[in-house]
């Protein structure tokens, strides 16, 4: 035991509390999905999922008690993910709208269906 004195042991009580929070989060997200919030349905669903993920990483995966070095690797992983998702999605969401069908009909057919 002596060599492992620095290893943090998370108590079953904490694990049970996290389990309860995750189950409540799951019930909440199913309930919220049936209420019409327009575009905020997706925002709320992803917010709840992110909170659940954070709980799993901090407690089940001991992220809260890991050395700084390990925490840096975890954060870096999500940083690269954010670059991939963020930059690609800002590209797709800011592209000009495709031409309408009537506009397309005015174009010579040789220009159509390039893709």
């Amino acid at each position: 035991m002596a060599e492992h004195s620095a290893e943090h042991i998370v108590s079953p009580k904490t694990y049970a509390a996290v389990l309860t929070a995750l189950l409540i989060g799951t019930a909440l997200t199913v309930y919220a999905a049936k209420v019409d919030l327009g575009r905020f349905n997706i925002v709320l669903a992803l917010t709840i999922a992110t909170i659940k993920m954070t709980l799993v990483i901090l407690f089940f995966m001991h992220g809260k008690y890991s050395p700084r070095r390990t925490q840096l690797v975890i954060v870096a992983g999500f940083f690269w993910l954010a670059i991939m998702l963020g930059l690609t999605l800002q590209d797709y969401s800011t592209r000009h709208a495709e031409p309408s069908r009537s506009q397309l009909n005015e174009l010579p057919s040789s220009l159509l269906r390039r893709s």
Partner: peptide, 13 residues
Amino acid sequence: IFLFPLLYLINRH
């Protein structure tokens, strides 16, 4: 945790 809302829930409303 992410697959469930994205695949099952997104258009239930």
